[in-house]
Amino acid sequence: MYFIQHIESITHQDSFQKENIWNELKPLAGENELISPDYKNYIPVAALRRLSTILRMGITAAKACQEKVPAEFDAISVGTALGCLTDTEKFLVTINTVSGDVLSPTAFIQSTHNTIAGQISLDLKNHAYNMTHTQNALSFEVALKDGLLCIDEGKHSVLVGAADEAIPFLERLRGSLIETTYPFTSGATFMVLSGEKGNSIASIRACNVSFSDKHTETQVEQFLEANHCSLQDVDLILEAGFDFKSKAKNHISFPEYTGFYQSASAFAVHMANDWLINHVNDSRILIVNNLELNKLGLTLISRNEVEA
């Protein structure tokens, strides 16, 4: 069992350091912006000046998680689809426009996908296992599976998270490389997972990723069957890209709340965890991430009492 000990999100919702994010959530409409905490409370000013939004979000959410659990993380697993876009764009534009022999090092250093996990480790002075996963819209699920394997190996306090940031250039890819009708948004969600229950309300029961054109509903049924339940046992489906309206007791399209960023399914875990706090009679929540064609992420979350 993989118990969710603590979870923090920085998104376009007022979701950071909230008792229950459902008190704050509302469907995104029209113009909306990332709701940023005061990063100076978490990151030294000298370091903050050169950190882009995705790094600020990631480090802050991770540090807020570390503050809530006594043990140092013994593994850090981060998913990001497009990585540090602001720095990548800055570096590429500089290559094209600057006429000197030398290029600004900061944007280059911080343009790699693993900067987020690396900066978290540096900031926390954490020398444990540190891994970054990038698998398009399944980046979070792959990072999560790595985190679950770490717990299987005996690690006690595993930080799993995901982050992506929007830049204006993404609008130019809409309809060609990126198919979505939702606004491009930024978000970071980090959670502490452990094999020990502690004060945890909910657990990750299973996670599966699939890169195939197999029928989505069939894959969902097989996944649930492998975990000894069926759609009738699922109290809420949080989905992106596949409509389960007719099959589920409750059904929410999570991009309505997150906007579009490829690792938004991490925030769906936060939504699921806090839903179970609010709905004491509900036991199981299924996250169906079909944000991109032929990529399916399935995460089953259950109330701890059911399994204990």
Binding site: A46, R50, V98, S99, G100, D101, V102, L103, S104, P105, T106, I109
Partner: peptide, 22 residues
């Protein structure tokens, strides 16, 4: 100002791009 080694690299870039000094 409390600058660090990455800033030193940025100074090298600044001198090159703004003043043509290597």
């Amino acid at each position: 100002l409390g600058l660090d080694s990455i800033d030193a690299l940025e100074f090298i870039v600044l001198l090159d791009s703004n003043y043509g000094i290597k």
